[in-house]
Each structure stands twice: as structure tokens, then as C-alpha cells.
């Protein structure tokens, strides 16, 4: 069972205290105070791939689009059990939309033999929930999105559960090769061992630039995009909460007073 996992490096905005500010270009955010991590859902995809490998044998290939700094995310996936990696890196790839991103990923799949391609089901920065399913169609493969359980039920067949609204699971049977977009909470992502980290430093990360992908200038980046994000803005907010002022002692006294007044305490 060979699995390819697509991973994205994103700013660590998981902490609700992290502030996001638009930069002077209007098309990016100020990243100077961010640390970077693997996208949350992709982390679960990596774990699911490694669990399948441990159960079924085979190899796990990590694919990333990103600058050299994204190697930390790729290496960590290798340290956990990935066997090899491809990183697509060219300044022309910047501002790729869903379509251009999926096209780039598909260009890296050309020489790979795989049974399943996994992606996270959503990224924490852009939140398109679309790249994996787009990629599936480009590869002409069946797919299932928002997958929270994967079970091999026979030669070339999986039983997967898709998580729908309200936590309802849609169970389905799908043929391999296929593309699955993995939901957060699917498993318990492991930590890499020291041995794994040492081994990962020796594993190859193949870097592909535009020429290596075989794509042309107008198929990648903004030129290759059909839905272009032209500018960020600060959301116009409606009525805000009444903010209670003061130190913790004062605010908690005010709040408990309000709760009492409303008959909630």
C-alpha cells in the first residue's frame, strides 16, 4: 500500500491569541511574528498514511509546495515514517489558486506509483477545502472528502467514513487508487523519535522547479489561476460584545454581577 501525502506549511495561528495583520502589499499577512507548522489536517493525513504503511507495508511519499524553509515540515513527516519526499519550489508558484496548486501537485505524481493520495481536508490559513478533490479529478481518480476513518477491505478496495455536519458519518466503499482528504481528529498523530529524526536527515528531498514539473509559466502561480485573491481586508464587524474593562479581579467581579442580575448564578 503506497501512500502519497501532500503537506502544507502554514503560519501557526492555532493559538486564538495570535493576531493576523495584513501586510503593505494587501495580498499577504505580516509573517514576522509567526512560527510555521504543518497544517493541522495534514498532520493527521501523515499519521493515517504511516498507520496504513505499518499495517499493510509499502512506502509513504511526502509532497510539499513551499520554500526551503518548508523542509522542517517535510523532514518531520519523514522522521515519523515517511520514506521519501518531493518539494515543489519556484518563485513562479506564488499566488497559485486551488486549480494551480492542484496542478502542481499532480505534476509531482507523474512518476509515482501509489494506491492512495492523502491531503488534509482543509488548511488553517486559506480554508478552501478543495485542493485534494481538485487533484483527484486532474489525476482522473475517485475521491472522498473529509474522511475520518480508513479501512482496507480487500484488494483495491477501501471502506471510508466521511464526517458530515453534526458528526454524522457517511460510510462508503471506494476503489483504489483514490484520493482521500483527511479530517482532523482521525487518529492520534505521533511525535517523531530521535532515531526517526536522525534517519530523516539522511532521506532525500527531491526538489522540483518549474522546468522539472513540465508545466509552463501560464499554468502556475497567478497566471495559472482562475480565481485570484486580489486583496485582503479587515472584516467589517457588526455590533461587538460589551467589553468589561479592568484587571482580572475587576472584570470577574463585573461579570459575576451581570450573571447574577440575569439570574444565571
Amino acid at each position: 500500500m503506497n501512500v502519497v501525502v501532500c503537506v502544507k506549511q502554514v503560519p501557526d495561528t492555532s493559538d486564538p491569541d495570535t493576531e493576523v495583520h495584513i501586510d503593505s502589499s494587501g495580498k499577504g499577512v505580516d509573517e514576522s511574528k509567526f512560527s510555521f507548522v504543518i497544517n493541522d489536517a495534514d498532520n493527521y493525513a501523515v499519521e493515517e498514511a504511516i498507520l496504513l504503511k505499518e499495517d499493510q507495508g509499502g512506502e509513504v511519499t511526502i509532497v510539499n509546495i513551499g520554500p526551503e524553509a518548508a523542509n522542517q515540515v517535510v523532514r518531520m513527516a519523514l522522521a515519523k515514517g515517511g520514506d521519501q519526499a518531493i518539494r515543489l519550489d519556484d518563485e513562479k508558484f506564488a499566488f497559485s489558486d486551488i486549480t494551480a496548486t492542484a496542478r502542481l501537485l499532480s505534476s509531482a505524481m507523474g512518476d509515482l506509483e501509489f494506491d492512495i493520495v492523502m491531503t488534509g481536508c482543509i488548511s488553517s490559513d486559506d480554508g478552501y477545502s478543495a485542493v485534494g478533490v481538485t487533484l483527484a479529478q486532474m489525476l482522473d481518480l475517485p475521491h472522498a472528502a473529509m474522511v475520518k476513518s480508513v479501512e482496507v477491505i480487500g484488494e483495491g478496495k477501501l471502506k471510508v467514513g466521511r464526517e458530515l455536519e453534526g458528526g454524522l458519518m457517511e460510510m462508503l466503499e471506494i476503489e483504489t487508487p483514490c484520493v482521500l482528504t483527511i479530517q482532523t481528529g482521525t487518529n492520534e498523530p505521533r511525535y517523531a523519535s530521535f532515531k526517526g529524526i536522525r534517519a530523516a536527515s539522511k532521506k532525500e528531498i527531491k526538489v522540483m522547479d518549474l522546468a522539472a514539473t513540465g508545466l509552463s509559466d501560464d499554468q502556475v502561480g497567478e497566471a495559472g489561476s482562475t480565481a485570484v485573491m486580489v486583496g485582503y481586508s479587515v472584516p467589517v464587524v457588526g455590533e461587538l460584545a460589551e467589553i468589561l474593562e479592568g484587571d482580572a479581579g475587576e472584570t470577574s467581579a463585573k461579570l459575576s454581577g451581570i450573571l447574577k442580575e440575569k439570574g444565571l448564578v
Binding site: 495561528t13 493576523v20 480565481a227 485570484v228 485582503y232
Partner: peptide, 13 residues
């Protein structure tokens, strides 16, 4: 984007 902290305008080809 970023969990609703900012918004973006999408224009199409």
C-alpha cells in the same frame, strides 16, 4: 482567511 480574522476578495478569469 485565517479562521475569519481577515477577508479576501476573489476575482475570476
Amino acid at each position: 482567511y485565517y479562521g475569519g480574522k481577515i477577508e479576501g476578495r476573489i476575482e475570476f478569469k
